[in-house]
Structures are given as structure tokens and as C-alpha cells.
Amino acid sequence: MRTIKTEDIILNVKEMCMEANYELSSDIKEKIISAKDKETSEIGKKILSQLDENMKIAKEEKIPICQDTGMAVVFVTMGQDVHIEGMGLTDAINEGIRQGYTEGFLRKSVVNCPIERINTKDNTPGIIHYDIVPGDSFIITLAPKGFGSENMSKIVMLKPADGIEGIKKVVIDAVREAGPNACPPVVVGVGIGGTFEKCALLSKKALTRNTDTHNEIPYIKDLEIELLEKINKLNIGPGGLGGYTTALAVNIETYPTHIAGMPVAVNMCCHVNRHISRSL
């Protein structure tokens, strides 16, 4: 049994909220920078240069990369031999979000209720997902999610007969429909399989995977490569103003599903695809 104090969790979550919003992971950064050379459109090149400069200013001056500092999505992978000491774990994570968003000068974008819509003023609550695993590890992944791109996400309950072609169509159509709204170049998170809610969760989790890696299943890896290529022929381009760089990556996660179904979820994310993990 290993004991983790909630005060450590609060501190880590707080720091992660800030770090994630000031600096992107190196894979995304490098993809934006290298896209400049491949980009065919003049305006597209200019926009990619601006994104590069924006990242530098954000990092140096600790100004959020984007003003939409997101709703804090948190994935906790917790060993079943870990004992949490202090307050409730969910409360501790929310306290970390509260402190991070307040002390980090991050935007408070959460409203209390989808109908009443009163700002909670501290960006809580976060969206927290727990995964219990054997052992005593404790890993937190924090992924602030902007809603310009979130709003362009979708889930489709395909039939098995729709096959892999059906999946491709759902993903490409989602990117096409999102167009300029999702702040391209985008990162596309795709979930395939599971149930309705599992599929959506897979697509969100896919966005937290390093974009230099591929799915371990060979035919899913091939699908990632093929979809990225097809998406980059849509001529949506940086800012949606035309060009090659529509997407930086397509990350797919799959899960077993029912004999009668083939859910596909597409979680759109902008180039400001923020995620950061820490092991406590």
C-alpha cells in the first residue's frame, strides 16, 4: 500500500493547469513548425508562422497559448494499492484546477448549468475520469479542452455493414464540416467501438496520445496514416483559408464492441491540443 497525500495532488494539478496552457508538447510544436515548409498556400504559411511565434510568446511570457484555456479534462490512472490521504480525491483535483486557473491567470470558462449558465468563476468542476489498475502507480493526465473545436465533434452509431469505409467517411465529413471553426490545423481524436459513451471517451483519450506515435494495431495505424493524408487534401488549410495543413495528426483508439454495433466518435481538437501527464 502506498499513500499519496491530497495536498500533493492539488499542487501537481495546479502546476499542470498552468504548464499545459503556456506550452504545447514538443510533438505538436514540431509538427506546427515543420508544417511551414510543406504548406503550399501563402496565407497558410503566414498563419503557421504566427502560430509558431504565438507559442514562443506564450512560453516566455506565460500568456496562455489561446484565450480559451478550456474546460479541464483529467484522466486519473490509479493503482488499486494506492491509499489517498486527506480530502476526497475528486475534491482535491477540483481544488488544484481552482488554484491553477486562478493563480495562472487562465480564463474561467465554466458555467454552473447548461441552462442557467452562471459562471462558476474558478473553472471548476473539471471533467474527471478514473481508471483503476493493479499496482500502486498514480498517473494524472490533464487536458484543457477548448470548445471551438469541441463543438465540432460528433458521434455516429454506424452499423457493422458500414465497414471501414463508413468509418473513414464519418471522420473526413467531421473535419470538412468543422472547416475553419475548429481552428485548423487540427488534431483529430477518433474512438471506434465500445458503447456510446465509451466511444466518446476513447476519442478524447486519443487526443492525449503523442502524435509521433501510432496505434499498435497495424490496420489501425494504416487507417491513421490514410485518414491524415486524405484530410490534408481537403484544402481547408491553416485558419480554414485554404492550403495543405488541415490536420497535424489523426489518433485512433479502439475497443471491443457489440455484434450489432460500430460506434465512431470524432473529437475535434485545434492545434492547441494541450495535455500533460505526471506520475506521482
Binding site: 504566427q50 502560430l51 504565438n54 489561446c66 481552428c183
Partner: peptide, 13 residues
């Protein structure tokens, strides 16, 4: 007009 989405630090200048 469109400003560049996701370039908030740059635009703030």
C-alpha cells in the same frame, strides 16, 4: 474579418 484562432498570445500584443 478572421483573426488567427489559437494565436491569442501574439494577438494580445
Amino acid at each position: 474579418f478572421a483573426a488567427v484562432g489559437g494565436a491569442g498570445a501574439l494577438l494580445s500584443k
